[in-house]
Amino acid sequence: MRFFERLGAVLLFIALAAASPAARAHKASDAYLQLQRNGDTLDLRWDIALRDLDAALDLDRNGNRQLSWGEVRARMDDIGAYALARLRIEQGRCRLAHAQPPAVESRIDGAYLVLQLQARCDTGPAMELDYRLFKEVDPTHRGLLRIGAQGDAAPTARSLDPAGGPVAVAWPEGPTGAASGTSFFRDGVHHILIGYDHVLFLICLLLPAVLRRGADGWMPVANWREALWPMVGMVTMFTVAHSITLALAGLELLTISPRIIEPAIALTIMVAALDNLHPLLRGRRKLFSFLFGLIHGFGFAGVLGELELPARGFVTALLQFNLGVEAGQLVIVSAALLVLVALRGWRGYRPVVLRSGSVLAVAIAALWLFERVFDVQLVAV
């Protein structure tokens, strides 16, 4: 039994430690594609974040962490070749070419390179699209595709996984618009599983869930039910809150810059971890789970608003994405809680798992906070 207790503690620390070096200091990598068909002509607008292109092509020649238009323009041929080699339509039969000179646009989350491309070919009612941008450098990247068509057909949307291989993309036919397939559900699951800051926040909430705080400090709960229901309450509050702000931000009713949200998320982790060491929240963890969830919801919301879908299509995509986030979150919470319940009676739980784990979480969050405030990367990935 002692062996399994120690093994569980080791696995928990591996999960905590893995969050630090692998996590990006900024929002997940997304590119935006708007594809329109007019007869036998395909028009594509492709927006790619300059920070992602810099990571792949090392565009920052002087190393000052500030990309200039001159640095981007000097490598424009390399950028175009790099991007076009990673997007194939109809197995390369639809050859994309520049329709207009590339441009740079500023958005709430940074500068994007805008490529205006065109191809002439007949794709029929559907086409094969092979999207592989940043596949070799960033497994978190996704391409968010908005598909338009002729007539009164409303646009549809889907998420493109660079590691997923070629996909069949149907041209929209109905007037309502929709999210294509279950790609946004899978994206929601993916987003929470690679959202190391969100995962670390949940773990910080979970660490004391199998204990009860009394006058003499933390004591293990008598059975798993005492741990389960308080945890259900906190996770429910967190879920409701981030669903609210995810919807508000996705509908562009309320938007806040990632330069504010990303450091704020790091701060929520620090507060949750410090509360495990000293009662900062004074028993109001459910309330603060809700308030912190409002902040985390903005961290989930960066992808859908850019697609400019009709109301029905947007709601479908938003629902799929949110259900995916909740499914991934349920997997994380269930697995972590099982380990913690098994470990709660171990005499090393409080000094090793709770205290040392919380100190480690504070250190990781402090690193992220510094990186996000000063826009630097201290740990290479």
Score class of each variant (00 low, 15 high):
1 M>I: 07
1 M>F: 08
2 R>E: 14
2 R>G: 11
3 F>C: 12
3 F>A: 14
14 I>Q: 00
15 A>K: 04
15 A>H: 10
18 A>C: 06
18 A>K: 00
20 S>N: 10
20 S>P: 13
23 A>D: 05
23 A>H: 06
23 A>L: 14
29 S>V: 05
29 S>K: 06
31 A>Q: 11
32 Y>Q: 00
38 N>H: 14
40 D>H: 10
51 R>Q: 10
54 D>V: 08
55 A>P: 09
67 L>D: 15
68 S>M: 10
77 D>F: 04
78 D>R: 09
85 A>Q: 15
86 R>V: 03
92 G>E: 14
92 G>K: 14
92 G>Q: 14
94 C>Q: 01
94 C>V: 00
97 A>G: 00
99 A>Q: 14
100 Q>L: 07
102 P>W: 12
103 A>Q: 13
111 A>G: 02
131 Y>A: 08
131 Y>M: 08
138 D>W: 11
138 D>G: 13
142 R>E: 05
143 G>P: 09
144 L>N: 03
150 Q>K: 07
158 R>G: 03
160 L>I: 03
163 A>L: 08
174 G>M: 13
178 A>G: 03
178 A>N: 04
180 S>A: 08
182 T>P: 10
182 T>C: 09
184 F>Y: 05
187 D>H: 04
188 G>R: 02
201 F>Y: 09
201 F>E: 05
202 L>W: 08
202 L>Q: 12
203 I>P: 06
206 L>R: 01
208 P>K: 12
209 A>L: 15
217 G>T: 01
222 A>H: 08
223 N>L: 01
224 W>E: 07
224 W>N: 01
230 P>G: 10
233 G>N: 09
239 T>G: 04
241 A>Y: 10
242 H>R: 08
243 S>W: 13
244 I>M: 11
252 E>N: 00
252 E>G: 06
256 I>R: 03
260 I>Q: 02
263 P>W: 01
264 A>G: 04
266 A>V: 07
266 A>T: 03
268 T>P: 02
273 A>W: 10
274 L>N: 09
279 P>E: 12
282 R>C: 15
283 G>V: 11
283 G>H: 13
289 S>H: 00
296 H>Y: 07
307 L>F: 03
313 G>P: 10
320 Q>L: 11
322 N>M: 10
326 E>T: 04
331 V>Q: 13
345 G>K: 03
348 G>C: 09
349 Y>F: 14
353 V>Q: 13
353 V>D: 12
356 S>F: 11
361 A>T: 02
369 L>W: 02
377 Q>P: 01
381 V>K: 15
